[in-house]
Nucleic acid binder design. Structure first.
Lengths: 332, 332
DNA sequence: CCCCTAAATGTTATCGATAACATTTTCCAC
DNA sequence: GTGGAAAATGTTATCGATAACATTTAGGGG
């Protein structure tokens, strides 16, 4: 492999000049630069980024880790982040923390050993804390995605309360009154959003309408089926991937048509929602990615104290498709 | 950040001994190693992989590029490959070539600049050829996934003819005679597989049963609808993501139930197929990933001439779910 | 034509880890 | 205890690119 020195010799200049030919704004004659780049191209030379990292004491690498590859939310964000990093001249080091044996900690260790300049991650546990502390001390920048268990670190997340609120509000606006809310049980903000929307619409909300699904799929399906019989709702709002999948499958098995017999709204734009024309609550992915990159590169205008971690909260929004039709309403 | 030298000083040894403490099988007293590792841990020291790459003249990095993130086939393979590489002590450098401006060439250039030891990729075009040539000359190992436009490079792909054959055969075995085959139009091997299965089953195959779908979704849907009316099939075999999506959507709109009114078989295990209990033709992902890693690390037993590129062809297989029921048959 | 400043280029030490080679220590046989 | 082989450790040059600093060249005014 051709090196800096080889190119220098062939072009009849010193290695320093070769370096200068590759950086913009350095004092070098245009004629010389052109000649060197020409020679470099002939010899298939490109600067070795590992050597450059070593000397420059910064790698131009940003580590990205997400826990759940199957989750389209993360994949969507990750690919956009990679794109934007590249535009800024950085490289992305992507790893998935949900594989067997690929804990978040292992991913962080690999990034540390590679001397990444920054990390964008969706922290799942606290086990990485000591390592993160030491990396922070070294100057590595961190950005938390979606979750934010670490105080003192910038973060970007969704206002799940708001997303839930917008969704429920839309269903009420369309005249629906008996709505079933299928949750995973632990998501407080989303439940709050629903309650807020009901209150604002002035519609009483029976606690039974909010189903905290069991982890076992067949039990969970039985839960939904039972409430379907008990309440006979005109709409279902499924708040998680799990809930959405089970709900759709059940409706399908019971030959309940959407939107004719039942309105369906899903939180998060799963791949099959588009195909089946199901309305969803989705996220401003482009902003999400751009903000993550701006934060990790510290290129965002720090209008406030740079020592105070920034928390950015983005609003999910309703993406209307064709799974919710106007409901005549039974009490309005 | 603590360096090799800092640790050496604190532990009262030379830097060489610190290096030795971190590599297994080197001549170092166990007692010394333990002390050094202890000190290193205290100082949060881990060897700098960039510096190591420079000195060792190999980076321990394997580049992975796939063109289509949305395709679950690739994501599945990529995550498994990352896992296996890590087990072997290698790092993965993953990038997605389907983003705007992220051509395959740009991904390869980034890998080249990072001095990867090998590349696993799904080549889409020939534009990377000159770069690949020069990387090969440097000793970089290449493995083509799925596609294999480059002769002289190892490759792993699926026997699409076989997958198609197995699927069609299953439908014939279940008594289906009037089967609709929905393609994207360009996939010769899959069409061959279908024809072979029909011939072997001794069942005549009307060319009209094989639909080469137009690129425009509504036109393509019209094509399927027309053939549904013309042939009144008992089963549909959708051979691509595109075909599967349009077909399911159409059946859904027409309230045609699966498997009661229609058998449905899909090529590739899309996320929603599992949810809807649809039988599919899928792939031995684990072998796929393992073989890719073995080839790129050159750790596979070369029973034949190492200069001859290896081509590994894996057989897709049928994953039975519940979308195909026994068909009484009209002529058997 | 010379001098001075500014631009262009060259020299060299360095980033951190490593491996070849040199040196010291250990330890066992005699 | 001593010789000598083997094990353990130290010394040092090096990987490739870079940036500070030193030196040369260019160019313009007097």
């Amino acid at each position: 492999m051709a090196t800096c020195k080889d190119v220098a010799k062939r072009a009849g200049v010193s290695t320093a000049t070769v370096t200068r030919a590759f950086e913009s704004g350095s004092s070098i004659r245009e004629q010389t630069r052109v000649r060197i780049l020409e020679v470099a191209r002939e010899m298939n030379y490109v600067p070795d980024l590992n050597a450059r990292s070593l000397k420059r004491q910064c790698s131009g690498l940003i580590g990205i880790t997400v826990k759940d590859v199957a989750n389209p939310f993360y994949m969507n964000v990750v690919t956009r982040i990679e794109d934007k990093l590249r535009q800024k001249g950085y490289r992305a080091m992507i790893s998935f923390a949900d594989q067997k044996g690929h804990s978040e900690l292992i991913c962080l260790e690999a990034m540390n050993a590679s001397r990444v300049d920054g990390v964008i991650f969706s922290p799942e546990s606290q086990e990485g804390e000591p390592l993160i502390k030491s990396m922070l001390a070294r100057g590595t920048r961190f950005v938390q995605l979606y979750q934010h268990p670490f105080t003192g670190i910038d973060s970007i997340c969704n206002d799940n309360d708001h997303g839930s609120f917008v969704g429920a509000q839309h269903l009420y606006d369309q005249g629906h009154r008996r709505i079933l809310y299928a949750f995973n049980g632990w998501d407080k903000p989303r439940i709050e959003g629903v309650k807020r929307a009901a209150k604002m619409a002035g519609i009483p909300l029976d606690d039974r309408q909010i189903i905290p699904l069991k982890n076992n799929p067949s039990e969970a399906t039985a839960q939904i089926r039972a409430m379907l019989a008990a309440i006979s709702p005109s709409a279902i709002f499924a708040h998680t991937n799990y809930a959405a999948t089970l709900t759709f499958r059940l409706l399908w098995d019971m030959s309940i048509r959407i939107p004719e017999d039942m309105a369906l709204l899903i939180y998060d734009d799963l791949p099959w929602c588009k195909m089946l024309d199901i309305s969803v609550i989705t996220h401003p992915f482009e902003s999400f990615a751009q903000l993550a990159v701006d934060l990790v590169l510290n290129s965002v205008k720090a209008s406030d104290d740079p020592l105070v971690p920034r928390r950015i909260v983005l609003n999910p929004f309703l993406l209307k498709r064709n799974s919710i039709r106007w409901c005549p309403g039974d009490e309005k």
